[in-house]
């Protein structure tokens, strides 16, 4: 088949477009990447091995994120050392995060992804998005958004199943 250079160019452009728009999002079954490599602001919780971990991506301008916080706080208090909640803030301005945290008193860990590299690697579909990890750091469940009591019940069920 005699293919013209123009056809080849068009095909190459289509393939390049497909390649560069491919989404390498974090999904169920994946392992959470090493957080130490993302220059997160704030202390990272130590000793995650063997514990259930919830990684929540949130922002101060996201109302469902604020509604999710009391639920995460309740879960952290309920499960204590067996659960680690890590809230990853993606605000552009650290002042916005600090202002938000003065209004929402919480007992879990918060770090700030100032360069938005971790969130770009996780590529959540919406805000908030949270991932529930098992003791080996593998993503077992994913929550897109927050839907009130239904989401809270799902969290409890998932944590209980992972703690067994």
């Amino acid at each position: 088949m005699n293919t013209s250079p123009l056809k080849k160019l068009t095909l190459a452009a289509l393939l390049a477009g497909t390649f560069f728009t491919a989404n390498a999002a974090l999904k169920v079954g994946d392992t959470l990447p090493d957080l130490a490599g993302y220059k997160l602001e704030g202390p990272l919780p130590a000793g995650l091995k063997g514990k259930v971990v919830i990684v929540d991506f949130w922002a101060s301008w996201c109302r469902p994120c604020a509604e999710l916080f009391p639920v995460l706080d309740e879960l952290q208090k309920k499960y204590g050392d067996r659960l680690v909640v890590l809230a990853v803030n993606v605000d552009e301005q650290p002042a916005n995060m600090k202002k938000f945290l003065t209004r929402h008193q919480i007992s879990f860990n918060v770090v700030r992804d100032s360069e938005q590299k971790l969130v770009a690697a996780a590529a959540p579909e919406t805000m908030p998005t949270s991932f529930v990890l098992d003791g080996d750091g593998r993503v077992c469940f994913q929550h897109n958004g927050f839907h009130g009591e239904a989401t809270r019940r799902e969290y409890v069920s998932e944590i209980e199943s992972l703690l067994k």
Binding site: K7, L9, A13, G17, A59, M127, T129
Partner: peptide, 24 residues
Amino acid sequence: FFLLAAAGLLSLSGCANVKPWQRE
């Protein structure tokens, strides 16, 4: 046809996809 397709592809490069975490 291919010239038109190539022009269309070039015009698509002007579209921006605002990620969920960039909607502040």
